[in-house]
Design a protein around this nucleic acid. Structure first.
Length: 185
DNA sequence: GCCAACGTTGGC
DNA sequence: GCCAACGTTGGC
């Protein structure tokens, strides 16, 4: 059974444009146990996800991805040079997992958070709940379908946001602080 | 195990 | 830059 997910990432770190260019990417850098468990136990090849731009101007739903693999050991945990290196993790039993996602589509226009919030059909969307900070959350099929419909319709007004167009150097699962972003430049 | 201090996330 | 809402850490 196909399941549906919402994957958050800061576009300054990795955006839907980067994924369109790359075609496929490892969703590495997740260091939250709940999200790790989703990727290890629940996400399956063929599942679909909304790619959400967080910490952006404006934040919102940017496109659609397909889960290609999941539960894959995240290589950054074994890389001493990575800021996500975890010296306690063993190769025989990796602590941190990632999924691999492929590009499906970029929305005709980003669906801003305001628009998601104002939509009655999305009232139960987990990312709209106060205090929710998980970088990956499950979606109902109806929620996924609704966001896809909103994304397919080009708004009659509104300017296209200047999406970040940087190389794929960062990690997706964990947002970077502005300080770290600055340091990375 | 408790909990205060601190760090992170992410919208605004 | 601010701050609410977490999660993590470490002393006890």
């Amino acid at each position: 059974m196909t399941r549906f997910w919402l994957l958050k990432c800061e576009p300054d770190v990795y955006s839907i444009d980067d994924l369109e260019r790359d075609g496929r990417t490892g969703w590495d850098g997740v260091r939250n146990h709940q999200v790790r468990n989703f990727m290890r136990d629940e996400m399956k090849p063929g599942d679909l996800g909304i790619f959400y731009h967080s910490n952006a101007e404006p934040p919102g739903a940017a496109g659609i991805v397909r889960i290609e693999r999941s539960g894959v050991p995240d290589p950054t945990q074994f890389d001493p040079k990575s800021e996500y290196h975890d010296p306690k993790s063993r190769r025989e039993d990796p602590t941190w997992r990632m999924c691999e996602v492929s590009f499906v589509e970029r929305f005709a226009e980003l669906v801003p958070l305001d628009r998601l919030r104002g939509d009655a059909a999305l009232a139960s969307l987990l990312i709209l709940r106060r205090g929710n900070r998980l970088s990956i959350t499950p979606l109902e099929r109806a929620e996924f379908d609704r966001i896809r419909v909103l994304g397919a319709v080009r708004a009659e007004t509104g300017t296209k946001g200047a999406a970040g167009k940087q190389g794929a150097v960062g990690t997706k699962g964990a947002a970077r602080t502005k300080e770290r972003l600055r340091a990375a430049k």
